[in-house]
Design a protein around this nucleic acid. Sequence first.
DNA 1: CGTATACTGAACCATATGGCTCAGTATAGC
DNA 2: GCTATACTGAGCCATATGGTTCAGTATACG
Lengths: 121, 121
Amino acid sequence: MAQYSQAHFDASFGALSDATRRGVLEQLGRADASITALAQSFHMTLTGMKKHVGVLEQAGLVSTEKVGRVRTCKLGLRGLEEEAAWIERYRQIWAARFDQLDIVVEELKWKEKANGRKKRK
Amino acid sequence: MAQYSQAHFDASFGALSDATRRGVLEQLGRADASITALAQSFHMTLTGMKKHVGVLEQAGLVSTEKVGRVRTCKLGLRGLEEEAAWIERYRQIWAARFDQLDIVVEELKWKEKANGRKKRK
DNA sequence: CGTATACTGAACCATATGGCTCAGTATAGC
DNA sequence: GCTATACTGAGCCATATGGTTCAGTATACG
């Protein structure tokens, strides 16, 4: 889990980079749905929606099962833990860089004032 | 703030869906870098790297400034707050659904009974 | 001034993406 | 059995992506 299998991220972030697919995830969060139901929700053909579901399934975000004629889609086994972790790590780095900038600003203030008591170095 | 400007996500998640670009973000997290430096790091042409930087810049994740001949790239003003929030919200929905599944699993337990499938809380 | 460096832009290429239609196959229900 | 439903697969189309080369332009520096 500590290892970030980069390859996975290509698929999952790629899957998230489309508004329709994010919408599908949201809808599946409310309730499972058939391909037909999803296609209608997003005003597109069955075939088009099937591709989107395929992408989501490939990324492990959705799982499907066909019973009779109907393929039911639901949220997949994989959550977005690793992706959340990656972003969180990035955000910390980003924040750190920004803090450095704050420090620079602060140091400049300190210089001009020559009175700084509360230095947080 | 509660408004999620979906259009933005296309760009940012799209930018994250490529290993090279994620790598660039990590490198820029350590230190600012020129296009040339980045291109060398990732073994690709200047022109190729410039495109990646362009994508990241478009997504607001990187900002660049040209001084003399050198264009220096740094982490952009935009962090990934909204993206983190989206994923977090999804994860909660996902977890909720999974809890329902846990209930199902528990209901099925009476059947197997002996096998120790420990439920994660 | 002359040359090496750093980038830029156009153009090309192969492949992927996001949609569609159309022609199937399989199942539900009368 | 017949028909409507639900999906599937092939294939088309336009555009985007990830990379390249090549021919510039602008700047640093001896």
